[in-house]
Amino acid sequence: MKFPLTMAAIALAALMPPADAAALQESGDPLASARWGEMQKAFLAGQQVLFDPRVKVSAPSTAENPLQVPVTVDATALSNVREVIVFADFNPIVQVLRFYPAGSGAYLGFRVKLQQSTPVRAAVRTADGLWHVGGTWVNTVGGGCTAPSAAASSPEWQQRLNEVSGRQWSEGPASGRLRLRIVHPMDTGLVAGTPAFYLEEIAFADAAGQPLMRLQTYEPVAENPVFTLQRGALAGPIEARGRDNNGNLFQARIAP
């Protein structure tokens, strides 16, 4: 089921390892999702799309806890990444987040709430305007003993809303990595009586104001979000400034 590639894709393929080049695809969703057409229309309308194995989306094939499904997007094999959109075809709220790497690598780890089995995808726009798409299917199951209890949603956030804890690593296998956790309920608005209440935007920069990454988050990001970023060439403390959809602001400094 290979389709002929356009000139742009052929040029790209010439620069890639043969295995990756063979997997390049301009049409025919490799995840065979009935909603791919809609997704393409909603997020990438009218623009050139390439299913590209260099966009790596990692997640467990079976999510034990659908309220906290870990997802890692790694598009560092592409250069000049301008924007990354993450979405889940079959989620009631499809759009998960967007990020705009500046000083950072095109890399982000986070956790997402999934309502049912669905592809989770990243669409990566490079400077030439081309969208590179990668993704993976995540199956969700209930878990007998493993069901999250009602008590698991603690009232912690009421006292500690937007509290940030974070850390940088400068040695070991995670060298150059930044991780942070923000206390926030991330309510979707889909539960009756609970309005949507979620983080909308976080900007990361170094002490001199050099941007590292801008991140836009939406309702499906999991409660008390945890993000993993690559610091890139930036050194020293990193400032994170953000706000939620109710206008609550936060600012935190993560020391190296």
Partner: peptide, 10 residues
């Protein structure tokens, strides 16, 4: 402590 993400731990 090593800075691993949940997917790496899995």
């Amino acid at each position: 402590e090593a800075g691993l993400d949940m997917n790496e731990v899995l």
